[in-house]
Design a protein around this nucleic acid. Structure first.
Lengths: 251, 251
DNA sequence: CAGGATTTGTTCGTATGTATA
DNA sequence: TTATACATACGAACAAATCCT
């Protein structure tokens, strides 16, 4: 019943902060409280009605403030249960040598990769162009669900040229690693040529696989990996649960 | 009434494509038709019921196929009017010298930047850490709406240290450029130190400013720019309309 | 402006085949 | 083998947005 934060530590008209909208003041207030540790990861914030009473504002104003924090990934509202402080996101560096297993492994998490589907199919226009093969040449498509410490992070679709790696699916299922699969076919090193990033809403299948809400945003990362000699070896289209990680581009 | 594509060019059981699900065959079929130019940018696809009749499948199966194309940004459905072929996205390279005006200008589009709000405020924890100043030190916050050829691309919030750039808002309003604003304060060159990318759903304010639907995904790009000497000069949090561009990381 | 036709969005239900445990 | 879960596919009805007369 009693709100968690010390009474009087926050509230209406605490200081001269004119010229700032009410909701922004409330949002800033809670951000400060979260950053300073007053609320820890996973903590539940007071109910919106309680916050509204405390600040003596309409509940809508509180909702506007919480929406701001939610959009920035600081809190997350769950209908029927409350608003909770989000944990820090997994930092996913993007660079010349992007390897899922290394990134997640360095974060001290158990790496998982499950092959949920695979198919040998003729290359469509976009895949053929990226792999520098002819349209219609056979490619192996691997649909992989990657997890970090039991939490699904990314649903990825990878295409490899079937001419040189016909049973890539079998090898991946055994090794559970793209890097090891490529190594099996004699490709001991490769690097990222280009990465294209956009965002979309999760479709029903990805939402279920990633265990996220059905209209949650996903980061769509399209990439091409090449050998040191510049030969394309795999192109991928990965959908990341946007609320679980942040892509980091170092310069 | 007559479907646009030549009768017989697509339909059920056109060839030996066993082992592939119905919806994927339909999706591939339409992707091919779009890639080959049978449907141009902005064209409307036949109604779902018409496609279903043509392929002799249930409407759900068609919807599954179109959902696949929509998730990949190839088409976009609008309730009540139809499903339309999307135009190519603006490629937005991310690198050491990321400048909005240069990127958009090189694409042959007119660059726009409108200061929609500004405030001098004490730095919160996150901003202070990025700018390497003390919490509570004054910073200038600029809310900028950037457009490319009349189309809103990005809603950005930038923070600059007020100690050295107190009237940055006035200067920006005159120059309509962050680069020129920094130059006015003697910073002739700067470069991107780090870029963090995640995705979220647009809040009501950003949705209105970006002229996108209220629950559409936005790419959230947080960045820090520094002088060649390493002194942070501006940190930004930009929300991009994800359906209008793709971020490109070259390696 | 009204109202009907069109079109996509949503939610029930049913059935089948296939991996997985 | 059984049981469970999942993906595919079909059917019917309704809701909601848009377009057109």
């Amino acid at each position: 019943m009693a709100p968690k934060h010390p009474s009087g530590s926050r509230g209406p008209a605490t200081s001269s902060s004119e010229g700032v909208t009410l909701w922004r003041r409330i949002a800033d207030d809670f951000e400060q409280a979260i950053v300073t540790g007053e609320y820890a990861s996973g903590d539940r914030l007071p109910a919106e009605t309680d916050i509204a009473a405390q600040f003596r504002v309409n509940r809508h104003t509180v909702r506007r403030a919480l929406a701001e924090l939610a959009e920035r990934g600081i809190v997350k509202a769950s209908r029927g249960s409350g608003t909770f402080v989000e944990g820090p996101k997994l930092a996913y560096p993007i660079g010349r040598r992007t390897r899922f297993s290394e990134i997640v492994g360095q974060a001290g998490l158990e790496v998982g990769g499950r092959l949920v589907a695979h198919e040998t199919e003729p290359a469509k226009d976009s895949v053929a162009r990226l792999l520098k093969i002819a349209v219609g040449d056979l490619v192996v498509r691997l649909d992989i669900l990657r997890t970090a410490g039991r939490v699904p992070i990314c649903a990825a679709t990878s295409w490899l040229p079937a001419q040189t790696m016909a049973d890539a699916a079998k090898v991946y299922r055994a090794t559970r690693s793209i890097t090891k699969t490529l190594a099996h076919f004699g490709i001991s090193d490769y690097q990222r040529q280009e990465t294209r990033i956009t965002a979309a809403l999760a479709d029903s299948i990805d939402a279920k696989r990633l265990d996220i809400g059905w209209l949650q945003p996903v980061l769509v990362v399209e990439s091409v990996d090449v050998t040191p000699a510049g030969q394309p070896v795999v192109t991928s289209r990965a959908r990341f649960a946007a609320d679980r990680l942040v892509l980091v581009v170092k310069n």
